[in-house]
Amino acid sequence: MAARMSLLQHSRALGAAVFAVAATWSMPSHALFGDDEARRAILELRQRVDSLQQANQRAGERSTDEVSQLRRSLLDLQTQIEALRTEQATLRGQNEQLQRDVAELQRRQKDMAQGVDERLRKFEPESITLDGREFRADPAEKRDFEAALALFRSGKFPESAAAFGKFVGAYPQSGYLPSVRFWLGNAQYATREYKQAIGNFKSLLASAPDHARAPEAALSIANCQIELKDTRAARKTLEDLLRAYPQSEAAAAAKERLARLK
């Protein structure tokens, strides 16, 4: 704007100078001054006109340069604006990705917490009711007992005996132990390991004489003794069974065996 005003001023000055020259030429030279003075005045006016024309040209060039500079500045500004828009879009995309990552991390943390809780529950003791007894046992104890019993019920007596024997060594204080001794003795009886079976049945009677399996264990001891041809010991075992557990089903079987032994 300043360049345009300057250019306009120069143009006006130039027009005034031209008008002055024209007015001077139109007047009789003797009305103002002599021929020499008129020539000098004309030369000065021409110089002024030339100077004004040059100034006007320079002003126009400056105006053109300023316009070009302004255009370049506008282009630079537009480029910067576009760059900022691109950066903003990139940041927005990164922010959205970050939000997705945070949500995914939160989901994984929740899943991990649930997994930890489930694993902890797997190791927490649980209440067990077996053969009329209630006790608490670790999940591992329950799993190992049920696996050994499944082997016995499927007729795999050697494998069952090995599994129950391993259980006794792994869980010597387990609430399962009386029942384990009973089934271990039966697995050994099935494999004709009578002396080992007698040992486990007696351990059951010594540690838990009121156990639901105790009468059966006493009867099984007598059966092992009969297989070993130890009739005297078998008779005594059956008599002790009748005195200790007279109302049990095992007592009825003991009476029959005693009758046959006589």
Rank of each mutant, 00 (worst) to 15 (best):
A3F: 00
R4V: 01
R4D: 00
M5D: 07
L7K: 03
S11W: 13
S11K: 10
S11D: 04
L14H: 00
L14K: 00
A17M: 10
A20D: 09
A20M: 08
T24I: 07
S29W: 14
F33C: 05
G34F: 01
G34H: 03
D36M: 08
A38C: 04
A41F: 11
E44H: 10
D50K: 12
L52T: 03
Q53W: 06
Q54Y: 05
R62L: 11
S68K: 13
L70A: 11
S73W: 13
T79C: 04
Q80E: 13
R85S: 12
T90A: 12
L91N: 07
Q94H: 10
E96I: 10
R100P: 00
R100K: 12
D101R: 14
D101G: 04
D101H: 09
L105V: 11
L105S: 10
K110E: 11
D111Y: 08
D117A: 15
E124V: 04
E124T: 13
L130R: 08
E134N: 10
F135S: 01
A147D: 09
A147P: 01
L151N: 03
L151V: 05
L151A: 05
K156V: 08
K156E: 14
K156D: 12
P158M: 04
E159C: 02
F164Y: 06
F167I: 09
F167W: 08
P178A: 06
L184E: 01
L184F: 04
N186V: 02
N186Q: 14
R192H: 12
K195L: 08
K195I: 11
A197D: 02
G199E: 13
A206C: 03
P209T: 04
P209V: 06
D210S: 12
D210I: 00
H211D: 07
A214G: 04
P215C: 00
I221E: 14
A222N: 08
C224M: 03
L228D: 06
A234I: 07
R235I: 10
R235D: 07
T237E: 15
E239P: 07
L241E: 03
L242N: 06
R243W: 04
A254D: 03
